[in-house]
Structure formats: structure tokens, C-alpha cells
Design a protein around this nucleic acid. Structure first.
Lengths: 127, 127
DNA sequence: GGTATTAGTTTCCTTAAAGAAACTACTTTC
DNA sequence: GAAAGTAGTTTCTTTAAGGAAACTAATACC
């Protein structure tokens, strides 16, 4: 057996690893998936509605996360000319393309729980 | 228009949000995807090989992340009875089910970069 | 004028994540 | 016996993430 200097430098691999890094950097943190998930469900939500909908988040975090998502063109922020001034957040077309990722992640989480339960291997994690 | 007390408590939604939270907790951190990706590519890797393959990781981090992944039954650790003692890491069947998620994430990252480039909107992030 | 609602920002603080370097312990080779 | 390779662990330090509470500023209602 010949010993080869392994390392995934083989053309497409680096692009792939970079792409994964990109995606995860954009979706990093405790709240992004929850916020995006809520906006997929409700189409449009105002700041206060998001604050109530995304369970446990504080105003500072929400504000910061929304700015991040807007910077990356995943959501759109619209100031409405209403009496006490309201702001609407919604997914952009680009943001909506995250659907399949979120679906896969949700799907995996559900079947993972099931396999844990079936094996009933002294469920350490996921209580 | 009737105002309803929105909040995604509608049966399946909570399970979905919980499932997403589960998955992201398991795959949290800077390195998990990279480690899993490497093990998908090479089947079996020893500690030192992973240390060289996963670019930038330190021994402490690698050790910790491998323990996390093993606890969650995503990888298997096998001590080989060799001369200077080697340890082999590989994905379990369960770990291999992460394939579709990683594929979706990689796919999204690649097309996201492309749309950024096409729009050429003063590329702030992703340099 | 006092209270409430909107959408945040600011300040202060705690905890978690990550990294660098040194160290253990065993074996093999020179 | 010194050097190098195996697989980690320990210690110490820095940085990033996250949270609670108070605060701003505009408008509306009573």
C-alpha cells in the first residue's frame, strides 16, 4: 500500500469546505434559524412581534441579528408610515432559498430523536 | 381584519423548532462540520491525520469536538493494537445520515456566492 | 400632564468558546 | 540514551457571544 500525503486539496473539495464555512458563518449564533423560521411561517413580522415570537430573545440580540441578516440580504426591513411608526421584516428571495436547508435540518432532528428513542441508549443528551 | 394572538404554538411547529434547535446544538461550534466533512471524504482517519486535515484546529479543540461527536453517536473511536498505538475515527451509520444536510449547506453556500457576485453589490461580507 | 406603545440603543456584566504552549506516557528508531 | 512519533491532557489567557435593565425619542390616548 502506497502512502499518499492526504489532504483534501483536490479542486472541488476546497470550494465545498469554503461554501460550508460561508453558510455557517452567515447562520451562526443562537437565534438566526429561529428568526428565519418565524419569517417563513408568518411572511411579515414587526419588531415587537418578533420579540414575542422568538422565545427568549432580548431586544438587543434581536436588533443585532436582524441587522446581520439584512446585511447579508436575507431579510428586508421596511419602515411604515404609521402613527406610532412600525417596522416590517420579511424574507428576501435570497432568504427564502434557505428553505431546503432548514427543512433538512428539521427532518434530521426529528429522525435523530426517534433513533435515540428506539435504541434507548440511556439518553444522555437531548432531554 | 381580525387580530389574532400569533405565536407558532400550532402543534407541528413546536416540534419543528425543537428539532432545529436539537440539530444545531449537536453541530454547534467552529469545527464539527469540517471534521464530519473530512470523515465523509476519507472514511477513516487517525487523530494526527485529522489534526493535519482540519486546517487550523488545535489538539485540545479536536479532542473535545471528537468527544462531543462520539457522545452523540455520530462517530466511532477505535483503538488499534499497533506498535505506537493508533486511534481510528470514522462516521457511524447515524453520522452518515448527516450527508443531505451538509450537501444542502454546501450547495447553498456556492449559489449564494454566485448571486452575490452577479449582483456585485459592493461585496461587504464574504471576502 | 401621565401612561402606553412603537423601535430600538447603551451600558454593564457573565459565561462560553477558542487558542497557544507546555506537559504526560508509551514505543520505536538511531 | 536522545529524538521522534503516537494520542491526547492541563494550564493559562484572550476573545466572542449573550443577557438584564435602563434609557431615548416619537406619537397617541385619556
Amino acid at each position: 500500500m502506497k502512502k499518499e500525503a492526504l489532504s483534501s486539496s483536490s479542486s472541488g473539495c476546497k470550494t465545498r469546505i469554503l461554501a460550508i464555512k460561508d453558510t455557517m458563518e452567515i447562520l451562526t449564533g443562537k437565534w438566526k434559524f429561529h428568526i428565519i423560521g418565524s419569517l417563513m411561517l408568518f411572511e411579515k413580522l414587526r419588531f415587537m412581534e418578533l420579540l414575542r415570537e422568538v422565545d427568549g430573545i432580548g431586544a438587543k440580540m434581536l436588533s443585532k441579528e436582524l441587522q446581520d441578516l439584512e446585511m447579508n440580504h436575507l431579510i428586508r426591513r421596511t419602515v411604515l408610515n404609521t402613527k406610532p411608526l412600525t417596522v416590517e421584516y420579511e424574507l428576501t428571495d435570497c432568504g427564502r432559498t434557505l428553505g431546503p436547508i432548514i427543512d433538512e435540518i428539521a427532518k434530521w432532528g426529528i429522525t435523530y430523536r426517534k433513533t435515540l428513542y428506539h435504541k434507548s441508549e440511556t439518553s444522555e443528551s437531548l432531554v
